[in-house]
Design a protein around this nucleic acid. Structure first.
Lengths: 246, 246
DNA sequence: CGACAAGTTGATGTTACTCAAAAGTGGTGG
DNA sequence: CCACCACTTTTGAGTAACATCAACTTGTCG
């Protein structure tokens, strides 16, 4: 495991570079940081909720999850961290991790270069990254609160595709997905049995292929009419904004 | 409406003062800001998702919600904003609101005093406030993803109680709750009918009183054994942290 | 008093959960 | 190569939680 990892720096530079124009120095700092990678084995905790944090990190390779465990064994994955994502420190004087972070598969991280006044765009890139992280949390809330299982999975796949595209980790309609259905269930507030059945119905609808850890989303631009049942894809795949009252 | 509002500044100073030791100047700045309150009528939008923000705000009075509306009419309340809460700007150069913010009842806000280097603790207080906001989002995700209706309502009431205590807006086990069951349903991913029935069962269990817009939470410290059914209060009211995998 | 919003109740339908077991997958060692 | 193991995916049958639809009741306020 963790054998032929592609050179990770492009992922990072690609994602952060999409958020702000980075100076050559900034890019060099990122490349340098990526040369001191920290390895985390699958299902190991990287950070524990409530403990003091030890500096911002960038994900180079692999998927991690912010996780909440209940005392009776239930588990909720709060959010995902994929290559290019930044794990930021709270800006308080005694920064404490708000949640446990677990590696969902073997992963590779590096310290995030510090941003200063003359940081060649790094500060801005981190700020945009943090703002995006918040929109992902909000989207996750809307997903869990008001979407059917079918919609949750579909919306989540679209989100992960968008996110992996930022780090050049996805093709135009496919990407590598290293999670089990069980893990997916813990993220989407479902049981693995129900995830399995819903995936089958998506395959029947010719919306999805998922074999050998690679997901292909099909007919991305199809009309809502293509969705058979009322509550399935009734909403345009959660485009941000515009929703408005009165 | 909006008639006899108690002097709002104490709420703000109480909450932010709990997060950092504020200098007299900082407190004066907060008091000053609170003298230019901005009024928002119930069900009016304060901010629209996707639009440029116009400076940080502090809630003086009333409850607001960050809201996601679906094109088919479904609504999800993502988070609540109560007196003392700070609506922060993203720190990007082109700050854009990540969600619509709607007044859930008549509300009063004021601009948040800017924080600088010598700001008497304001920056720190804002940072702690932002960190807390994030934990509330994470808790909301865990609530929606893995709790039963009964647990969701109970956990949410406990959270709101804690939060209102910070702004001295709650007694030891009661607080004013200006929301309808319908609104609560939109926050907890339920229907108002089901919220109603669940509230009744909480009343039967002698966990809750709710009359005339005032909520009383009873037997706060009771043992888990007091909870009759398996899935009801099986978990210690979501104490943060400590949950851990191997 | 009348009107409108909020809360309540009943009957019924559906989504998703539970429990249990079978079938597929990949890795390891003999 | 095969037997074995652990893990994941898949299937079936029964159930529980929550949604839906449609009244009806209870405030509240002008």
């Amino acid at each position: 495991m963790l054998n032929h990892l592609s050179p990770a720096e492009p992922a990072v530079a690609s994602r952060l570079g999409a958020f702000a124009s980075l100076s050559d120095e900034a890019r060099r700092a990122l490349r340098l940081a990526a040369e001191l990678p920290h390895r985390v084995a699958a299902s190991r905790d990287l950070v524990l909720a409530g403990q003091r944090t030890s500096g911002a990190l960038i994900v180079l390779e692999g998927w991690l999850g912010r996780v909440k465990l209940f005392s009776d064994g239930r588990r909720q994955i709060l959010s995902f961290l994929v290559p290019g994502d930044v794990i930021q420190e709270p800006r308080t004087t005694h920064p404490v991790a708000p949640s446990t972070i677990t590696a969902l598969c073997d992963a590779l991280l590096c310290p995030a270069p510090a941003s200063g006044i003359e940081d060649g765009g790094l500060r801005e890139a981190y700020a945009v990254s943090a703002a995006l992280d918040e929109t992902y949390l909000l989207r996750q809330i809307a997903r869990l609160g008001r979407m059917s299982a079918y919609e949750r999975i579909h919306d989540w796949l679209l989100e992960m595709h968008e996110r992996l595209m930022l780090a050049r980790r996805a093709g135009p309609e496919s990407f590598a997905m290293p999670l089990t259905q069980e893990t997916l269930a813990d993220a989407l507030g479902l049981t693995s049995v129900h995830v399995n059945r819903t995936l089958q119905s998506m395959r029947r609808d010719d919306v999805l292929e998922w074999r050998g850890g690679v997901v292909r989303l099909k007919q991305r631009g199809r009309s809502a009419a293509a969705a058979p049942q009322r509550s399935r894809l009734a909403l345009p795949p959660v485009r941000e904004g515009l929703a408005n009252t009165r």
